[in-house]
């Protein structure tokens, strides 16, 4: 019963979902939109599970005095601080005390002045990691890696004006670069996408038909 009911729900929901894809009528599409809205509302109820999970992990770390447990205190305090400020002052209500600074509420202040800069900092790490990854990829250790190195050099030079300033071959670099991007690169990309589309379709059908049920916790 524990497996059968979810499987029936998946089967019925999946078939309805497929049928709705082929019926453009407004009445059916409205029902479809409503179902998706309910999904969004229902998924919100899982949020407390997430919060409880974070709290359990980090209170456990504090109790055990695990490595860097002090950060867990900051994390828990920050969670409650954001929840309290969000509920008490609102997330978008205008606060005259902060108006002079161009901010509205404490919640938004924390979001705009703390969270966004921290996230941007994390994102900026990508630039450095791309350099180290590129170094590893472009080492001409094998025939394939050498082809990759040459192709990537041509594409890079084709994207910048310096490439065209190279004597004799400068005029050809953008042409070759475009050819690499629109032929071998596009062909490989479409090959992957074709496989992905079939894989997604196959997996969806397997889930709907109850053949694939590992996601139910029955591996």
């Amino acid at each position: 019963m524990k497996t059968t009911i979810p499987l029936i729900i998946v089967l019925v929901g999946g078939i309805i979902g497929i049928i709705f894809q082929f019926i453009p009528h407004e009445f059916v599409q409205t029902i479809n939109d409503e179902i998706l809205n309910y999904f969004r509302v229902l998924s919100f109820f899982a949020l407390p599970l997430g919060i409880v999970s974070i709290l359990m992990v980090h209170t456990g770390k504090i109790r055990r005095k695990a490595q860097h447990w002090q950060y867990s205190i900051i994390l828990i305090l920050t969670i409650f601080f954001m929840i309290v400020t969000g509920f008490v002052f609102g997330t978008d209500r205008f606060d005259p005390r902060l108006a002079n600074y161009g901010w509205n509420t404490i919640f938004m202040f924390m979001f705009q002045q703390v969270q966004i800069p921290i996230e941007s900092t994390m994102f900026s790490l990508l630039a450095f990691y791309i350099s180290t990854a590129a170094y590893r990829a472009f080492r001409a250790r094998s025939k394939e890696a050498t082809i990759l190195l040459v192709a990537s050099l041509i594409v890079m030079l084709g994207q910048v004006s310096v490439g065209q300033m190279i004597p004799i071959i400068g005029d050809y670099i953008p042409v070759i670069s475009n050819w690499i991007m629109s032929n071998p690169n596009m062909a490989a990309k479409r090959g992957i996408l074709l496989g992905v589309a079939l894989g997604m379709l196959g997996t969806s059908l397997k889930i709907i038909l109850g053949i694939e049920r590992a996601y139910l916790g029955r591996a």
């Binding site: 990854a133 590129a134 590893r136 990309k189 996408l193 992905v196 079939l198 894989g199 997996t203």
Partner: peptide, 22 residues
């Protein structure tokens, strides 16, 4: 497909596209 080059470069083994579903 935009992230696959990064995975291929930095990981020891990569399942490409449909291999993930298989």
């Amino acid at each position: 497909e935009t992230q696959l080059p990064f995975f291929i470069t930095t990981c020891d083994f990569t399942l490409i596209g449909e291999e993930l579903y298989a």
